[in-house]
Structure formats: C-alpha cells, structure tokens
Amino acid sequence: MPGEALWDLCTRYPRITAAFWRETLIDAAIFREWVTNVGRREAYNRMAYVLCELLVRLRAVGLAEGYACDLPITQGEFADALGITPVDVNRVLKELRADGLIELKGERLNIPNWEKLKEVSEFDPTYLHWEHDQAAA
C-alpha cells in the first residue's frame, strides 16, 4: 500500500489509526520477549518458553484441546528458532520429559503440568495482549 494512501486512510479513520498503533505496541512487546528469551535464558528455559507460547497461540485459534496440541515442528526448526543446536534441542526435550513437564508422542504435545512449565520458562502471556480467557490457557 502506498504511504500516501495509508496516511489518507489513517487521517480519515482514527479508529484504524488506533488499531495500527495497538498492533505496533503488541509487536514491540513480542519482540522484547523474544530478545529476552533467546538472549538471556538457558536452552531448557527457552524451550519451555516456546512450548508455552505455542500452546497459548494454538488455543487462541482453537487448535489445542486443553493442554495438548499437534506440534509438527522438527528439532532443526526448534534449533533455528531458539538459537541452539539440534543436539541441544534433543537433550532439552528429553530433560523436559524426564521432569514430567511435557509428553511428546510423535507430533503430539501434551503438557501435564502447565503451571510448572510456565514457572520454569518465566512465561507470562499478558505480553500478547489477548483477552484473559485466551491467554489463561
């Protein structure tokens, strides 16, 4: 969209401007969380964090039942997203399983202890700025 057309749209419709501004603030909050996740947390906590966020996002769009969802993501893709090696991803997933925080069967993820996984990851879904019932997972 040309800048001129966007400016005209925002000038004529202040509610659209407010929606764009809100979206910008939410994107900035998500960016800050991800910089913290990749830059400050250990691999174990990073993985726990991304699993929490994935579950909350999937619940918000109706693609999770309770604390379970499909997870068709490879260990290589997790490694790229988290800034760790696929070997580390494998090790961390084993640790999360051994600690009873996740169950993985094929591409199916189950989180038997949601509160503990949130605690380990320091996950607080409020940065997503969703309604309480969506983020509460």
Rank of each mutant, 00 (worst) to 15 (best):
G76E: 10
E42P: 03
Y13H: 02
R91G: 05
W34Y: 13
G3H: 05
L55N: 01
K105N: 04
W130S: 12
W34C: 02
A28F: 04
K105R: 07
N110Y: 11
Y13A: 08
R40E: 07
G100Y: 02
T17K: 13
L6F: 02
R15T: 11
A81T: 04
W7V: 06
W130L: 14
A98K: 15
E107R: 13
P125I: 10
D27H: 12
D124T: 05
V87T: 03
E119F: 07
G100P: 01
T24E: 06
Y49E: 07
A68M: 04
A5N: 11
L128A: 01
E33A: 09
D80F: 12
A137D: 07
A5E: 10
I16N: 03
V50G: 06
R91M: 02
G100N: 06
A60D: 00
D133M: 15
A68G: 02
G83H: 08
E65H: 15
E65M: 15
D124Q: 09
E119R: 08
L104C: 06
R41S: 07
K118H: 14
K94E: 00
D8T: 09
L6H: 00
L128V: 05
E103L: 08
A60R: 06
A43F: 14
G100L: 02
E33W: 09
R12D: 01
F31L: 15
V61P: 02
V120R: 09
R97M: 14
A98S: 14
N90G: 05
A5T: 08
E23W: 15
D133N: 13
L71M: 12
W34G: 01
Y44N: 03
Q75L: 08
N90V: 09
D88C: 05
I102Y: 05
Y44R: 07
I73H: 00
A29N: 08
N45C: 11
Y44S: 01
I111K: 00
P125S: 13
G3K: 06
E119V: 10
R41A: 04
R40L: 09
D80C: 01
E103D: 10
I102R: 01
P72C: 00
Y44P: 07
K94R: 05
E4Q: 09
G100A: 03
P112Q: 03
E131C: 13
G106H: 10
G62F: 06
F123I: 02
G76S: 14
E122D: 12
I73W: 04
Y44F: 03
D133Y: 15
I30E: 04
A43N: 10
D70W: 14
G66F: 09
T11W: 15
A29G: 11
P2G: 15
E53Y: 07
F78E: 00
N45S: 04
E122S: 12
H132E: 15
S121F: 03
A135H: 08
R12L: 12
A135F: 12
E77Q: 12
I26T: 07
G106R: 06
L51R: 02
E23P: 14
D99W: 07
E77N: 09
G62S: 05
D70L: 14
G39L: 08
E115W: 14
A64P: 02
G66V: 13
R46T: 00
E33R: 08
T85R: 00
L128K: 01
N45L: 10
V56A: 03
V50H: 05
R97A: 08
Y49M: 06
R32D: 03
L96A: 11
R12P: 00
R41M: 15
W130Y: 10
T24M: 01
D80I: 12
Y127A: 10
